[in-house]
Design a protein around this nucleic acid. Structure first.
Lengths: 345, 345
DNA sequence: ATGAAAGCGCTAACAC
DNA sequence: GTGTTAGCGCTTTCAT
């Protein structure tokens, strides 16, 4: 900037004015400055600017894994809102590891991000308190913070969604419905399990722990869980899966376990359909409509979740006060076939 | 930092030494400083640190859309490599818009990122030259830069992959193969089209422009393209799709266009299979193996692409010199059924 | 082992 | 309209 000023024969401040489009600069002077900028290939150093002004015009986003379609949809929404607000976004994947979540949040705070959108992996957010006290704003998305801090939160209607999905299966005649959930420590997994139980209760059906399996959404575990359930004396006639990854893994498990010979181009052996359990999954996913049968899901809207959280964050950053907000986003059932299969006669 | 120094009764520099684990501080003094830090909730301001030291320990990543599984896989890989190198990553989606690509790159540069991983939307990268001259390193991934700059590039073997996929269809007896590609302006789309033509030529088959359709991967366009091809006097018996989005859209189009009644739980009317065109797609995607028939693909490895690009970037950032690198990553064919369907007798 | 001073590149506050 | 000065929070250099 000094060099530019020297080359243009003006003072430092004038260059600053031109660079920032501040009013009160003679058009001719401004032009000279712009030429000097061009000549020297000058670029404003935003880091220094930030240091002086206090606002970094950047936010941090912590999710579980960008590579998961649910979170990448959320990411894109956050990014778009940030862009509209003139802000850049640091993204970090926690991989469901509270240590990494913490490290990322702290690293972002050290960069003095203006705010954070956090999908937490852990429950202890005491580490956030000093940052919040220092003025960094945070919005939790998809899962709430632990009791140590009180911040705006945008969640999905997990138990309501699960209730709807399970009630749908019940309405189609199922009485033995297995529940396949994510790790029991995860908030959304707990809420969805709760919804499952509520639906059973509302229909006067017993809760059978043998029909419930919670754990990591790995194929091997899911295959084992599905196989185990189907091998019960009174096997389930339907399956409710707690998220998109689990649904896909369960479908693959059913395919693997299917006893009939794999016949191309139609893998489902004619006549074998009837023995196939009905399935409803939490989360919509690409191609759910092209499977055979097409998959009935309880859809959330990751884009809306991200947008809502980011917009709330920017409203806070632009000074909106008021009590901590707790927003619940609705889900909706999309019947496609797999959830309408009747139980075997 | 001043406050900490005052509270601990030491000089500013001593606090700096403690914060940075520099040697040469009395253990007792260090402890006093640490207590003061704790007491005041002090956090080092990395922005100021960066201003002084010159390195921001952050990189920028520009992709087309985080929400696309191909790019989100790439993102995650870049993020992981960055983490291992103690760096944070700014992510931005260009949405295939050269203006936005440019704006994002420039914004990242203004933040003085150490380097960039760019999946370019445009071809004119003249705007990058001053940044490169200023010392910012860049690596292009998936698509090369325009002629204005010369930088490291990691690409996938697009024409080779397409050649393999199309040759596979030819080997299964197909003589009329349609090609459905992304917008003709996109580098990878061009290379894949080239591979398609090479495969035809190698087999002594004529190139028929009526069988080729390039454009945005929107469902309506794809449905129209597929319908158009199938309505030709000599319709194709097989289809090669140029990327994952196109493959999914084409499958949906085939489903929509399928003349037989939709019969649950098996949508493909018995007997109708024979009239279904074979299909091979570029890019693997979730559930490709569970469709009916399962989808044969030419798979790239987005994780490897991201990892390779990011590692190259960090090697450059740690001083590795040498000529500009141009890396090509292999693809591999995964036969699953759809690509092995024979043409109608 | 510790400290004082200078300055990274910029903008806010106030002259002129 | 334009320039001067101070200082954002830190690290570097050079003393002590």
């Amino acid at each position: 900037m000094n060099d530019v000023a020297a080359t243009a024969g003006v003072a430092l401040k004038t260059v600053s004015r031109v660079v920032n489009d501040e009013p009160g600069v003679n058009a001719a002077t401004a032009e000279r400055v712009r030429q000097a900028i061009e000549l020297l290939g000058y670029r404003r150093n935003d880091g220094a600017r930030v240091l002086r002004r206090g606002r970094t015009a950047s936010i941090g986003l912590i999710i579980e894994d960008v590579a998961d379609p649910f979170y990448s949809g959320l990411s894109r929404a956050v990014e778009d809102v940030a862009l509209r607000n003139g802000s850049l976004v640091f993204t970090g994947s926690s991989g469901e590891d509270p240590q990494r979540e913490r490290a990322l949040v702290l690293a972002f705070c050290a960069r003095r991000v203006d705010g954070l959108v956090i999908v937490p992996a852990g429950y202890d957010h005491g580490y956030l308190a000093p940052e919040l006290a220092a003025g960094t704003r945070a919005v939790f998305a998809d899962r709430p913070p632990g009791p140590a801090v009180e911040v705006d939160t945008v969640l999905c209607d997990n138990d309501g969604g699960a209730r709807t999905g399970v009630a749908h299966l019940i309405a189609h005649g199922h009485r033995r419905i297995a529940f396949l959930g994510d790790q029991a420590a995860i908030f959304t997994a707990q809420e969805r399990l709760r919804g499952y139980r509520q639906a059973l209760e509302a229909a006067g059906l017993p809760y059978d722990p043998a029909l419930v399996s919670m754990g990591v959404p790995e194929q091997s575990r899911v295959t084992a869980a599905v196989a185990g359930a189907l091998a019960l004396d009174h096997p389930p006639t339907a399956l409710f899966t707690g998220n998109g990854q689990l649904t896909m893994a369960a479908l693959r498990a059913l395919e693997t376990l299917s006893t009939g010979p794999a016949v191309l181009p139609c893998r489902v052996t004619p006549g074998a359909e009837a023995s196939r359990p009905a399935i409803v999954g939490f989360d919509d996913f690409a191609l759910a409509d092209l499977l055979n049968p097409a998959i009935t899901v309880v859809a959330q809207d990751p884009t809306r979740l991200g947008r809502t959280a980011a917009e709330l964050l920017f409203r806070r950053l632009t000074g909106e006060t008021g009590p901590v907000e707790r927003i619940r986003l609705p889900t909706h059932l999309i019947p496609r076939g797999s959830g309408e299969l009747p139980p075997p006669a």
